[in-house]
Design a protein around this nucleic acid. Structure first.
Length: 756
RNA sequence: GCCGAAGUGGCGGAACUGGCAGACGCGGCGGACUCAAAAUCCGUUGUUCGCAAGGACUUGUGGGUUCGAUUCCCACCUUCGGCACCA
């Protein structure tokens, strides 16, 4: 509650600055969840959570004006140490520069404004398209067309995104009966409506230039509209275009602009339009404002209330009418605004379940009734700024103290799943920037370095079952049989030679037999192919970490997860492989229990110890945790082989291991006789001189192939190396009688002798 | 379709800045211990030709640059992730 007090506090700052506002807009209403979802939370027309259908429906909603920050959100990504996610966010924001152009409507005094990124193709605009939900729609369409247009618009509204995409890209649309004038050619052009134009983007209307836009080209073909080339690749005129030419070129059929290159013309045209007052240069974003209200109980209450006209006492069921046009902020001093107790907090009502809390919802002040907002905030709200509150969680007077902020911020390394690449990470950056603007934080960006950890996949082994018409298994074939192909029409797998239908079948790691080194089906004897996929119940390849901890221990699980491979990579879980890290931990433990020598380390051991310290330290910095562990394994293998391992070496190994396997390291440390925690110690130092060898074993190549090796001083002179190399029997054998043409010597690396 | 990432042994993976491909681990094989098994320990393990010494081949495919390419360049194939009528 102390936490969401500050979430509400931030909301009020957003509200004061006009960044939180109400709008009655078509939203993505999910009847099953009883709530509204952001575009980002919908995948193929279904909810990301639970996969329920979603419909478009107008509803009063709170929105956050993230679009006001679009430019900064895109530009300030520059300089962050982030992976590909930077580009993903830029794509999501989708900045596009162009112009808005007015097309006067024929027989009317007003015009239709459209957005285009290609003002240079304006002379080729042969028709216009407006979105089915365009506000001017009902007024511009002619009487005789009205029914058809209305039917089309209604059908488009019903279509979910899923249906729109499932129907392929076949263009549909109807003529509205209206005409507009191309402001440069002055010819009248028809105005169509089609759902390939989106009401929510740009102005909801486009000028269609079929010669230079693939979608317009397709539409023009279908409706037999004129296609006029105005940009030519070579400056020549072409009559019949077989496809849209979308690249830049040379202007043709464009009056006094003829001959101008596209880039230049874009500027010139906008200047002309601006001079005439019929156009303006304009930047648009794909990013939409963020629908921030949810119709659920479990969310921070939105600290806003509204005046009410009431007949009687609305707390006791009296009639009331809420004036949503006058939102009033709750005083900061009255925060947090808590959730009321509710018997039934299931969602369903489009205003949210809080409408049922009459005592909470309505209150009276100076004889006037007011009603609280019954929508609540989404889950994202709290996660937008938790990294700040973590620094100073008990502070009751400030969101975060300056001292705590300076001690910790910005976040040096943020490790999070790739699924948050555009949702959470964009929202959090937006809030951070607002907090920056009001002086709560001092950095423009919260997270300096970002890493997405890879998903751990479940491993399953495939074979193919040849199935008969009733689904019975006729016989089994190898999981890598090349004859298995996917049918184009039905998507079923078939054998390319016999045409029989086959199905992929799966067995788990534990049921795989090995024959001649090949994974094989225990009973059927067919070859299996290991396939790593996202863990899912249906495939049965889910691994429960609790069971792993139970069997191998928490340190083994940690260590194995780090040892599997690069942090950022998706990698398959192999329960058999965790045995390896468990063995390693057991060996280190066993090592420490042995009779340790207190004598100085041998030169060989000392070198390995110092090298390991360096390697592990560097690998931790670079987050190469797998190779850090492997170098500790090398050291432990070495120490195990010594009759009486030096105590000094073992202690340093345990110290290196402690961040990776803290529990067992602590345990070993205490059995080595120390009472203080190993976690309190600082990282061991290494001696650089011991990390480098004076002598190196160097490969000698003859014509690029390794034929021998010599042990020689690291920085030996070319002459000395050549002499040593030529003395090597293996090298001599390959040179024989032939003469040496040239030698290439890279000190410490290689000597390559080129012969005739 | 567009954008991004990645293809290395039976498997997970390693290889600094173009310099000995396969570290480390799993699995396999052989051995020790054991009545036996498990656990543990030792040896071995890319493919292939060869009795052997030794040779040839090998980092998705095909080209290129280079004395030398897993690494750089071009084209293609495959897999994974994201976006998908954004004018």
């Amino acid at each position: 509650m102390e936490y969401y007090r500050w979430t509400q506090w931030i909301f009020l700052r957003l509200f004061e600055r006009g960044l939180a506002f109400q709008a009655k807009t078509p939203v993505n209403w999910c009847p099953t969840l009883g709530t509204v979802l952001a575009n980002e939370e919908i995948i193929d027309g279904r909810s990301e959570r639970g996969n329920h259908p979603v419909v478009r429906q107008p509803l009063r909603q709170w929105q956050l004006r993230i679009t006001a920050y679009a430019d900064r959100l895109a530009d300030e990504l520059e300089g962050l140490d982030w992976p590909e996610t930077r580009q993903k966010q830029r794509d999501w924001i989708g900045k596009s520069e162009g112009a808005e152009v007015d097309f006067p409507l024929v027989n009317r005094s007003d015009s239709l404004r459209c957005f285009t990124t290609r003002p240079d193709t304006l002379f080729g605009a042969t028709y216009m398209v407006i979105a089915p939900d365009h506000p001017l729609m009902s007024s511009i369409c002619t009487v005789e067309r009205a029914d058809q247009v209305k039917a089309y618009a209604a059908a488009a509204a019903r279509k979910s995104d899923l249906e729109r995409t499932a129907l392929g890209k076949e263009k549909t649309g109807v003529f509205t009966g209206a005409y507009a004038t191309n402001p440069l050619t002055l010819s009248p052009i028809p105005v169509y409506t089609a759902d390939y134009v989106l009401g929510a983007y740009g102005t909801g209307a486009i000028m269609a230039v079929p010669a230079h836009d693939e979608r317009d080209f397709e539409f023009a073909r279908k409706f037999e509209l004129p296609i006029v080339e105005v940009v030519s690749p070579d400056g020549q005129l072409h009559e019949q275009l077989t496809e849209a030419f979308v690249s830049d070129g040379i202007a043709v059929r464009s009056g006094d602009f003829d001959g101008m290159p596209s880039a230049e013309m874009r500027v010139a045209i906008v200047e002309r339009l601006e001079a005439k007052g019929i156009g303006v240069s304009k930047v648009n974003y794909r990013l939409r404002d963020w629908v921030f209200s949810r119709q659920r109980y479990w969310g921070e209450p939105i600290p806003i209330y509204f005046p009410v006209k009431a007949q009687g006492n609305p707390q006791e069921g009296g009639d009331f009418e809420i004036d949503y046009t006058h939102p009033i902020a709750v005083d900061d001093a009255d925060l947090p605004l808590r959730l009321p107790e509710l018997d039934d907090y299931l969602p369903g009502d489009p205003q949210g379940p809080l409408v049922k809390a009459l005592k909470w919802r309505f209150f009276q002040r100076d004889g006037q009734w007011f009603a609280r907002e019954t929508n609540t905030m989404p889950q994202w709200a709290g996660s937008c700024w938790y990294y700040l509150r973590y620094l100073d969680p008990t502070n009751s007077s400030q969101l975060v103290s300056e001292r705590a902020y300076d001690d910790w911020m910005p976040v040096d390394l943020y490790i999070g799943g790739g699924e948050h690449a555009v949702l959470h990470l964009l929202y959090a950056r937006f809030w951070h920037k607002v907090l920056y603007d009001i002086g709560v934080v001092k950095h423009k960006e919260p997270f300096s370095k970002l890493i997405h950890q890879g998903t751990i996949l479940g491993m399953a082994f495939r074979w193919y079952a040849v199935v008969g018409p009733e689904g019975q298994i006729l016989r089994a074939i190898d999981g890598d049989d090349a004859r298995v192909v996917k049918g184009d029409a039905d998507g079923l797998l078939r054998l390319s030679d016999t045409g029989e239908v086959v199905e992929a079948r799966w067995v788990l790691e534990g049921d795989v037999a090995l024959r001649d080194g090949q994974p094989t089906h225990q009973e059927l004897g067919v070859r299996l192919v290991g396939v790593a996929e996202k863990m899912s119940k249906s495939r049965g390849n889910v691994v429960n970490p609790d069971a792993i901890v139970e069997e191998f221990g928490a340190d083994s699980l940690r260590l194995y997860e780090m040892f599997m491979g690069p942090l950022e990579q998706s990698k398959p879980w192999q329960t058999s492989a965790i045995q390896g890290v468990r063995r390693f931990l057991d060996r280190v433990h066993g090592l420490a229990m042995r009779d340790l020598s207190s004598e100085a380390m041998s030169d060989e051991t000392a070198r390995l110890v110092h090298r390991t310290i360096r390697k592990v330290g560097e690998d931790i910095e670079a987050l190469h945790l797998n190779t850090a562990i492997s170098s500790m394994m090398i050291l432990s293998n070495h120490l195990v082989s010594i009759k009486s391992p030096p105590r000094e070496a073992v202690e340093r190994l345990v110290l290196c291991l402690s961040p990776f396997a803290p529990h067992i390291a602590e345990e070993i440390w205490s059995s080595l006789g120390y009472s203080a925690s190993i976690a309190q110690l600082s990282w061991p130092e290494y001696d650089l001189r011991l990390c480098e060898d004076a002598l190196v074993e160097m490969a000698v190549q003859v014509n690029g192939k390794v034929r021998g090796r010599v042990t020689i001083a690291k920085d030996a002179e070319t002459k000395a190396v050549e002499t040593a190399a030529l003395a090597d029997a293996g090298v001599q054998r390959f040179i024989g009688e032939r003469s040496v043409k040239k030698t290439i010597y890279v000190p410490g690396k290689i000597l390559n002798i080129i012969i005739e």
